[in-house]
């Protein structure tokens, strides 16, 4: 039962790879976007806010199709990427990572922003009166204090990427070894009548990976809390 086939092993590693790069794209962009939305005021802020949240409220298939139109070989950005850098993202694992990143982005931004919005802004003012420039304040006060939110956002984005299906299958299709992540492979197996063992194996892998991510996030969260000194808050 637990002798994994090549398809399943490929799907497992691919899923981790796609999720990892999805988070790698989401994390820096998400923190910057969250900071912009939380701390800065500028005309058109509502538009940025809306754009960020679109993938959360639109059908994933629509997002996938939009990505195809934008980043496909003949797409607006896609043709430019191909002509200039000889890079193709459609129907590759890179495209799968991008699709996952777009779908996970609002979750990342929301989690980080919540952290930034609830932070005591007075601490940033205090840091500036002590001679720290805006950049130093961001790096030494804002960023460390929003670590819990960043951590939550990362876990959510990672989990969302593990499970991404609709946008991925629309944008990069279901190619074994290239774009066939666990959910896509599982979908394939369920479409074929007969032996359900491979599907159940993939299901098991999914559950194990998800649990491992949850446990890892819990351990990290505790560590962060200790560092922020919130462990003693109950004694006050």
């Amino acid at each position: 039962m637990f002798n994994l086939t090549t398809i399943e092993i490929d799907a497992f590693y691919l899923t981790l790879k796609v999720a990892f790069f999805s988070v790698a794209i989401c994390l820096p962009l998400g923190v910057i976007t969250a900071f912009t939305l939380s701390r800065l005021n500028f005309p058109g802020k509502w538009l940025l806010d809306g754009l960020v949240h679109l993938p959360l409220v639109m059908p994933p298939v629509v997002v996938g199709y939009m990505l195809l139109l934008l980043l496909g070989r003949r797409g607006v950005l896609g043709s430019w990427l191909y002509d200039t850098f000889d890079v193709t993202v459609a129907f590759t694992w890179k495209g799968a990572a991008i699709a996952s990143a777009v779908m996970a982005f609002p979750l990342m931004v929301r989690a980080v922003r919540l952290s930034l919005d609830t932070m005591d802004r007075g601490l940033e003012v205090a840091a500036r009166t002590l001679g720290a420039s805006r950049t130093i304040v961001f790096l030494s006060i804002t960023l460390p204090l929003s670590l819990p939110g960043i951590l939550t956002g990362t876990i959510l984005a990672f989990a969302r990427s593990l499970g991404e299906f609709g946008a991925t299958i629309t944008f990069v299709s279901n190619i074994p070894g290239e774009t066939q992540t666990i959910p896509l492979a599982l979908y394939n197996f369920t479409q074929i009548p007969g032996d359900q063992t491979p599907a159940i194996r993939l299901l098991t892998i999914s559950v194990v990976v998800a649990f491992a991510a949850l446990i890892a996030s819990d351990l990290l969260a505790r560590k962060v809390k200790n560092r922020l000194g919130t462990k003693f808050e109950a004694d006050q």
Binding site: G122, A127, T129, P144, G229, T230
Partner: peptide, 12 residues
């Protein structure tokens, strides 16, 4: 140098 009413020590 500014001493705030609520101290505003950096918790981390």
């Amino acid at each position: 140098g500014y001493v705030f009413q609520d101290g505003r020590l950096f918790p981390h």
